[in-house]
Amino acid sequence: MTAGPVAPPVRRLLVWRHGRTEWNATGRFQGQLDPPLDDEGRAQAARTAPFLAAALRNEDTVLVSSDLQRAVDTAQALAPLLGAPLRIDERLREHGLGSWEGLTRDEVAERHPDQYEQWVSGQPVPGRGGEAQADVAARALAAVADLPPASTAVLVTHGGTAGRLLEALLGLGSEHRRVFGPLGNCHWSELSFQASGWRLMRHNLSVPAAGPQEGGRRPAGDRGPFPGPSASDVPDAPRSGATPEEAPPAPVEDADAAG
């Protein structure tokens, strides 16, 4: 008989993207630069944290954040509500984008047209420097492997790193990139470890803008402890919190994130 996958230290993961920054709102590549949350990003974290804390009330939960401040500040909205210490792991930080960091999509297209065309066509972009996608996935997987034993872990991370981690956990190769869309700001995905390995249970969830449903009822279609997907399962609009990866032409561009 073939042995099944090795059980991880946690059986459930919530991969939570940080709240919005001004650079998200203006479509500027962040990478490993560290702009802070803007007012909307702080409000997103404040709305989402109580929702997650209520859902995790009876769980043995570990909370781990990227070391970049936008992720730390998002995680700090949740830590006191969980009553759990906040762990910092630099392996959850964003995909390093080299010379593109700090530039808008239009600036990249103007200054580095060949690299931009590689990116739009879904090819690797070695000329910009930064990190290879496989290296981002490897360090994020290592962070998961090193988690302390718990029933659930909340990983507060970034758009690009979240995408690479989800792909790696689900065993998706490069030919399956963009099977699912990127996380919006302060959205999260839930994965469960089962006999066959990791399974994506819910993706790109967010707290309803109007708050919890009247009477505590879940949105239609939700069959678990977390709210259903946002209405369109699409991240924030390009001018309102999305990263350059989330703006058109999304069907063909690489998913190296700026968030």
Score class of each variant (00 low, 15 high):
residue 7 A to Q: 15
residue 13 L to R: 09
residue 16 W to H: 13
residue 22 E to G: 14
residue 23 W to H: 04
residue 23 W to Q: 05
residue 24 N to G: 07
residue 25 A to T: 12
residue 31 G to L: 06
residue 35 P to A: 08
residue 37 L to R: 05
residue 40 E to M: 04
residue 42 R to E: 13
residue 43 A to T: 07
residue 48 T to V: 11
residue 48 T to C: 10
residue 54 A to Y: 03
residue 55 A to R: 15
residue 59 E to V: 02
residue 62 V to I: 10
residue 68 L to R: 07
residue 69 Q to R: 15
residue 73 D to M: 09
residue 74 T to L: 07
residue 75 A to N: 08
residue 80 P to M: 09
residue 80 P to K: 08
residue 80 P to Y: 12
residue 81 L to H: 09
residue 84 A to W: 01
residue 84 A to G: 00
residue 85 P to E: 09
residue 90 E to G: 15
residue 91 R to P: 12
residue 94 E to L: 03
residue 94 E to H: 04
residue 95 H to K: 00
residue 104 T to K: 01
residue 110 E to K: 13
residue 111 R to V: 01
residue 113 P to V: 01
residue 115 Q to H: 13
residue 119 W to Y: 15
residue 122 G to K: 06
residue 123 Q to A: 15
residue 123 Q to G: 00
residue 125 V to G: 01
residue 128 R to C: 09
residue 135 D to Q: 15
residue 144 V to R: 13
residue 145 A to L: 03
residue 150 A to H: 09
residue 151 S to M: 02
residue 151 S to N: 13
residue 157 T to A: 15
residue 158 H to L: 06
residue 167 E to H: 13
residue 169 L to R: 10
residue 170 L to A: 07
residue 170 L to F: 12
residue 171 G to N: 10
residue 183 L to M: 08
residue 184 G to A: 13
residue 186 C to L: 01
residue 189 S to N: 12
residue 194 Q to P: 00
residue 200 L to C: 10
residue 202 R to F: 01
residue 203 H to W: 15
residue 205 L to M: 11
residue 209 A to W: 06
residue 209 A to Q: 13
residue 210 A to N: 11
residue 220 A to G: 00
residue 220 A to L: 10
residue 221 G to A: 00
residue 221 G to C: 00
residue 222 D to V: 00
residue 224 G to S: 14
residue 228 G to W: 06
residue 229 P to W: 02
residue 232 S to T: 14
residue 232 S to W: 14
residue 235 P to L: 07
residue 249 P to N: 04
residue 250 A to F: 12
residue 252 V to L: 12
residue 256 D to Y: 03
residue 258 A to C: 07
